[in-house]
Design a protein around this nucleic acid. Structure first.
Lengths: 227, 227
DNA sequence: GCAAAAGTGTTTGAGGTACACCCATGC
DNA sequence: GCATGGGTGTACCTCAAACACTTTTGC
């Protein structure tokens, strides 16, 4: 089957920069390419936009198909369209940023289960296409958006300790934060509250657990079962 | 001539939201469509991306072709790609925001000189496609970016008074600002300096003129001739 | 002289930053 | 009992916001 147009048309794809926190580090999801070009190297999950779906929907679908994930948070980053970014043909890609708490990760469930792995940002493999550039922009955007408190909340589980949340901020900013100042600010925002439960995880005082007060404040937040 | 692909490809266009200050108001440039669909209604300047040019370059070219303008400031807004946003075929558009000081306007010089006009944001005509949505996002982005001092500087001339610059901020924010606080903040940024000249323009005290100190601080800023 | 915009400082409150010690636990 | 992270309050500084009068001009 072939499709013919009077004028030349580029292909349009979506690529998704999936961030999560695993093993106490900020990680990005990459997929090993099993076809040319860049066969064997790693790339952002993504694929071509279908003709009857919106860009956002395409990003959502690709994410599910390639990784089995249902994104918690999905935001358009920007379009990338240098003429020679893909050696096969002109491909314009629209990049998205997705944030997913690690506890939701179930990459095994991918229908199109390819070789997918989480990488630390400091130890990235060779990336295909202009994906290094896209990834850099995504990191930058993530930092800029961190002032919105819901960003970090997308990367922790249903319930979390304040130290965990602080660590998320520190990983994104790449610098340590003061514990007391952090807690003061976060609690002043009024988005989260203590559950009353504690988590004990080592030879030290147990940590209080917190959750998002009102899930509607946090689009796509983990669904919280209230008593 | 026809172009054939194995898979369906959308068309890709760029649309540019051109802001300027004219007659003491924030205005946006629109072009009257001379062909279906939406013939006779107004639309953002834009057109299809050519196969050998980047998105940014396409935006630049369309702006020049349709309006004779050389953009002072051009920034990607985002991609819009709902499947039915164009009734002819699937068209994904990448929107840009351009800021141009009014003194550079020379729409008459357009090679593809169509019916182009500046509109006040409060008195817009009917817009084609999803351009109302694009325009709303552009206004929102402009507000968000105003904290960067170079934004407002893109909308004033080579030399300007502080009242003019303040008016630009007020128009973008849609609310009045305090004169003393405004001047304090702007001057503290250290980007501009008094030229020593004054401008007299009515039955009141003349205003000092300012310019950008270092043009390299302000990409695409009006080229300033230094003594 | 009067209308109209230009120009000029100080005070206050909020929020961000710096900083040090005790607490509860597992081993 | 000791190592480990959890939890807490105060002082300072910076920046944003509020606020009123004098100056210079054109007519």
């Amino acid at each position: 089957m072939a499709y013919t147009y009077e004028h030349p048309h580029p292909a349009v794809s979506v690529d998704i920069v999936v961030f999560t926190i695993a093993e106490g580090e900020l990680k990005v999801l990459l997929i090993r390419r099993d076809a040319a070009p860049f066969e064997g190297s790693w790339a952002l999950p993504g694929g071509f936009v279908e003709m009857n779906e919106s860009l956002r929907r395409a990003a959502w679908r690709e994410l599910r198909e390639e990784t089995g994930l249902n994104a918690a948070y999905l935001e358009q980053l920007q379009a990338f369209g240098h003429p020679d970014r893909d050696p096969r043909e002109r491909v314009i890609t629209v990049a998205y940023v997705a944030l997913i708490p690690y506890e939701r990760f179930d990459v095994q469930a991918a229908s199109d289960a390819r070789d997918a792995r989480l990488f630390n940002l400091e130890t990235l493999p060779e990336l295909a296409f202009d994906h290094p550039r896209i990834l850099r922009r995504a990191c930058q955007r993530l930092k800029e958006k961190l002032s919105d408190p819901i960003i970090a909340l997308q990367l922790v589980g249903k319930s979390f300790t304040l130290s965990e949340l602080q660590r998320v901020h520190e990983l994104i900013l790449g610098k340590p934060l003061d514990k007391r100042n952090f807690r003061k600010k976060i609690l002043a925002e009024g988005l989260i509250e203590a559950t009353g439960d504690e988590r004990r995880s080592g030879p030290h005082r147990p940590a209080r657990l917190y959750t998002v007060k009102d899930p509607s404040d946090v689009p796509y937040a983990p669904v919280i079962k209230r008593a």
